[in-house]
């Protein structure tokens, strides 16, 4: 099977030969940057370099996907936020961030009619097209959008957003309803450009930040609408403590759910049953970057035993990952992931 058949087969719940080793989030590496002489701070606005770098983790290690973009500012930028690219930082890898908040917390968010023409959205379309031409026959192309609550935290002050979520939930509900449209429109653009699967990243809503009660009343309804509005397959990802909300995540209607290393997989399986495709949990820093080859192999074996359906790191892979660990990740998946 090709990586594409394997990944899409998994997400469609078809029979596949082994669990795939892939992700819906960041996976570019310093090795890839070296290979093409690309600087991380400059890649976000260069379609050709972005496509090359996105494909490099597959080409170097056989990692079974290519995912764009690499940062989390795409939607906020298209809505009008100014972005800090950290172009001045020479010796450090920094992800772009949002310089100033677009609107005052609680205020109406103006969603432009020509959203798809703004910021880097036209460029992302081009990048996905380039990736399709390059490796798209055999490798699945992934893309992602932010969940409405997380996006709200990008465009308005997070402190204030969290407080008004408590004090004036009706205002927040209205804002999030608008942002569902942003998420589904961006996902549609990515899909039409050729993305094979979309991850919805709602990392602003784990139980280390908001209560499960607030998740249920304020976040979940908008996630359900977002997922409804995106063509399958869709993966819902939340990092941090998801133990109290994993059942609510499962009710959102995604084709798979993704969690990070704080999730207790065994308990999660008991709660959500065997039907749901469960991804993640593998620690992208402590194991993949800080660990040895043996640690990586053990972690792969461990998460498969505990019930994940794919080897998929719990968050973006830190680019400085040692090459031998990336190799070990893919090889251990081949070794322990056979399905008969």
């Amino acid at each position: 099977m090709t990586p594409k058949e394997r990944v899409l087969g998994l997400l469609k719940k078809e029979k596949i030969d082994r669990v795939p080793c892939f992700s819906g989030m960041g996976n570019v590496t310093v090795e890839g940057m070296k290979k093409y002489n690309i600087k991380f701070a400059e890649v976000h606005k260069n379609a050709e370099d972005m496509a090359k770098l996105a494909a490099s983790t597959y080409k170097l290690y056989g990692y079974e996907c290519a995912v764009v973009p690499f940062d989390l500012c795409l939607e906020a930028e298209a809505l009008g936020s100014e972005i800090n690219w950290y172009a001045h930082v020479e010796d450090n890898i920094l992800y772009p961030t949002i310089k100033t908040k677009l609107v005052k917390a609680g205020d109406e968010v103006n969603i432009p009619d020509d959203l798809e023409e703004r910021g880097r959205l036209p460029m992302i379309k081009e990048v996905i097209g380039l990736l399709k031409d390059d490796i798209g026959d055999e490798v699945p192309i992934g893309s992602y959008v932010l969940g409405p609550f997380t996006l709200a935290g990008q465009i308005m002050d997070l402190n204030e957003l969290l407080k008004i979520s408590f004090k004036r939930p009706d205002d927040v509900n209205r804002i999030l309803t608008g942002l569902v449209d942003v998420a589904t429109r961006v996902a549609k653009l990515e899909k039409e450009a050729g993305a094979d699967y979309i991850t919805i990243r709602e990392m602003g809503a784990p139980s280390d930040v908001i209560s499960p009660r607030m998740f249920k009343t304020l976040v979940q309804p908008h996630l359900i609408k977002t997922i409804e509005g995106i063509e399958a397959p869709r993966i819902l990802h939340i990092c941090g403590n998801t133990n109290p909300i994993v059942e609510l995540m499962n009710e959102c209607g995604a084709d798979a759910i993704s969690v990070d290393q704080k999730n207790d997989l065994v308990q999660t399986r008991q709660k959500i049953g065997d039907d749901t495709i469960l991804l993640g949990n593998l620690d992208p820093y402590n194991v993949l970057v800080q660990g040895t080859v043996q640690d990586v192999e053990n972690a792969v074996k461990d998460v498969i035993e505990k019930g994940v359906n794919g080897i998929w790191p719990g968050c973006d892979i830190w680019p400085d990952v040692p090459p031998e660990n990336m190799k070990a990740l893919v090889e251990a998946t081949e070794k322990y992931g056979k399905l008969s």
Binding site: L162, K163, F166, S207, V209, I210, S211
Partner: peptide, 14 residues
């Protein structure tokens, strides 16, 4: 103890 979350703590801080 997971009885309060970040929004509650922020309001207490205020």
């Amino acid at each position: 103890k997971n009885e309060y979350f970040v929004p509650e703590v922020l309001m207490c801080a205020d």
